[in-house]
Amino acid sequence: MNLFRLCGDMFHLLSIMVLLLKIRATRSCRGISLKTQELYALVFVCRYLDLFYSFISVYNSFMKVTFLATAFSIVRYMRYDKVVKQTYDREQDTFRYVFLIAPCLLLALVLNHRFTLTEVLWTFSIYLEAVAILPQLVLMQRTQNIDNLTANYVALLGAYRGFYILNWIYRFATERHYRQWIVWISGVIQTALYADFFFYYALCWKANKRLQLPA
């Protein structure tokens, strides 16, 4: 565990906390893509199956359970909470799951380390996480007024990705056996997806304006 990895995890946790806070405090999920949140829940389920058969550290297990619980909590609010679900931008959040899930599943079946159920699901979760933010980014482009909490949520997720890349560079330099092309390439693609968002986020932050993405 290095500092970059810890910062990455903390930004990830913070992003989820900001989102849950927004939903609970404002009783609204306006601007949040349920598709992205459900994809993240699926990512965590597929990746953290190893909770049942492998143990790395108390920290890892605790974080895995936290990510799973919070992901399902967010989905539950957006789908079933009487007040919150009315604020969901259903008509705008139209990204099709199949366009993301099918290619990731196919790729995981072909490009993996071992052709076993858990390994394929783990690889699938890596690929799917890389693109799961897309429905959220599309929704934000369609939304005229992006509130600050939503913008900060996505910015924190981007920061998490950025620190994970620093973590990989650090591990590549310091650990003999750290060659993980599947994780790296997916991670770089995932982080690159945020580049455009960050560009406008920085512009609006400098101008002290509300975030607006060009159509």
Partner: peptide, 10 residues
């Protein structure tokens, strides 16, 4: 050469 990833990250 890609090694099987040590699954110690989140």
């Amino acid at each position: 050469d890609d090694e099987e990833a040590p699954k110690d990250e989140l």
